[in-house]
Design a binder for these strands. Structure first.
Lengths: 337, 337
DNA sequence: CACATTTGTCAAAGCGCTTTGGATGTCGTG
DNA sequence: CACGACATCCAAAGCGCTTTGACAAATGTG
């Protein structure tokens, strides 16, 4: 020590005004010299805050699938957290003991708040979190929940409605939807956007052209193949993620169908860092929204919420940005006037 | 309370023998009824252990790239952690303040141990962690480090050597290597396996056929295109990841080259859950090793290490498994005898 | 110069647990 | 019946911090 009391040191480091600048400087310097950082747990015990945010990722038991957007989302969120001195805790959980996990996170005081991922319709987690008093923000929305909550979502309905209209305007009348799992709220929204635009364009809604499943490359491939084998195959695909789209593209390539000419592909794009859709002419015509940016923004919303738990809820609806790529073109047989 | 002292409750819950089974049952039941879990921080303070493992992911400042294997690795590790009552903390960090992050993690007592990702050659992190006394295990290896340490790695040298020999045996003499960033130890090993097999097969080593970079789809596409424009283009590609391979495939498709006939692709495959290479005939001929299994195994190694910090170091060298897919075939012009 | 303020510092309590060192009660044995 | 040996349980200390309430020193005021 340097002849000061614990109190003074604590105050000096935490920026309280009751300490002279001269002493503060001494303390700070000594702390750096000895690589001292206050023990997180002790600090947490004393203050009641853990300065830690929880992310619960449910690994669906069925497919053992890890959401590919996870890494990028975390990278975005992590930036915000570290800027505010928060740590980030990840808990993996199977679907059945979800509730227990949240309860335990709260009871153990492990986190100050959590981010709810992949909300379902009427997601019971929101009510649970409200009940146990754990602050949260939702990545997406949960239709059916009446109580207000904080969320950030992409306007999925509009993006898929626009995409469908876009394809229809190119003359496509058989437009397939390769959707994500329709237990997820966003997937339901995407489908409804798709269907409403089909109706608006006077096109029939054919369940044979709609599929739902986990957004893997193989899924895109399999579904595309199955649909291309139909009597009246689609001339355009609308994919829920760029990874699915890659699978669809593989199916087309394999059959010798030219992407953007014989068959079109449009997709939603989360701007994953390892699967960019950039370049002068993007590979895919896409509606894109950075999941990384969403992570950063949600982290900020949650931190604000933890600071002011009774502030009104904040909601953000981001619009996906349209990029025209090489994967779409007029429907075959359409006259180019 | 139920008329018992704190001591007894603590002992009952933590399975100490000095408490009668009857009382223990009462305590456990009451704890469950009231959803009581001991406060993690207080427990940590008292015991000196945080029951938390750190994962530091460096987001390379240049490309803001998130390693696509991250999610699957975490899913695997998370399984092991939760089975042992450990939490998992993720810290995102830019390359420059790496050392500070590790130091702070230790000083703050935030974690009991950490997993070192993406080791480089002579990685300074290992020495640092030894110095500050934070237990760790390494996913991969760091050539040049003389002190022993615990690691789990895939035999990258052999996998790429085998892959190169395999392609050579199919008659390919211009084999391109689309490698990961050669600041990473594993990428260096892969290259050396590739080069040694080229030499062994009597093939020339052409730097025009070797590239290094971040393993994105776009990178695979760009590099493949560049190489196919060469005067003497490659007839086979060896890719560092299935995501790169997808990019290479796209370049081939776009040029009307048939994969596995006109040009072959072999790749390393981390068995990512969203980019499976399964099916009756796998898409790609690949050398595969599950990164998820690696996560689970490393987590176990680290937990063991934390329990017995002075036990001899454990090292595991996994062999990648060969799967024959549709993406490779005899070099064009080779007689099929 | 005496008094009221303000400034800078400190001792001690408390956060929720684990753990040490008893204390109490029960039982078996000579 | 007395004594030691167990089996159960408990009170209190301590983990490393923050924070409350006091106090001493420095400053301002009439």
């Amino acid at each position: 020590m340097l002849g000061l009391s614990q109190t003074t040191v604590s105050r000096a480091l935490n920026g309280y005004p009751e300490v002279s600048e001269k002493t503060r400087a001494r303390v700070v310097q000594a702390a750096e010299a000895h690589a001292y950082s206050p023990n997180t747990r002790a600090q947490g015990l004393a203050t009641g805050h853990s300065k830690c945010i929880g992310h619960v990722i449910s690994v669906s038991d069925s497919a053992e699938m890890v959401n590919p957007i996870f890494g990028d989302f975390m990278a975005g969120a992590g930036e915000t957290y570290s800027a505010h001195g928060y740590d980030m805790m990840v808990t993996r959980v199977g679907a059945q003991d979800e509730a227990d996990t949240y309860r335990s996170l709260k009871a153990r005081g492990a986190v100050d708040g959590i981010v709810v991922h992949a909300p379902r319709r009427n997601d019971p987690r929101l009510e649970l979190l409200d009940k146990i008093g754990l602050p949260y923000v939702v990545h997406g929305r949960s239709t059916g929940i009446k109580a207000p909550y904080s969320w950030l979502d992409v306007n999925n309905t509009r993006a898929f409605s626009e995409a469908t209209s876009y394809l229809a305007s190119l003359g496509h009348s058989r437009i397939a939807l390769i959707n994500g799992q329709e237990t997820m709220d966003f997937a339901i929204r995407r489908r409804s956007g798709y269907e409403s635009s089909l109706r608006f364009a006077g096109l029939s809604i054919d369940t044979a052209l709609m599929s739902t499943g986990e957004m893997t490359e193989a899924y895109g491939y399999t579904q595309a193949n199955a649909m291309l084998d139909l009597l009246h195959p689609p001339t355009a695909f609308l994919a829920a993620s760029i990874i699915c789209a890659a699978g669809i593209r593989r199916a087309l390539d394999e059959r010798g169908l030219r992407v953007g000419q014989d068959v079109s592909i449009a997709t939603f794009d989360d701007c994953l860092s390892y699967f960019g859709n950039g370049g002068d002419t993007p590979v895919f015509t896409a509606w894109q929204s950075s999941v990384r940016a969403a992570g950063a923004a949600l982290a900020q919303m949650l931190i604000d919420r933890i600071r002011a738990p009774h502030a009104p809820h904040i909601t953000k609806l981001w619009e996906a940005e349209f990029v025209s790529g090489a994967s779409t073109g007029p429907a075959p047989g359409t006259s180019k006037d």
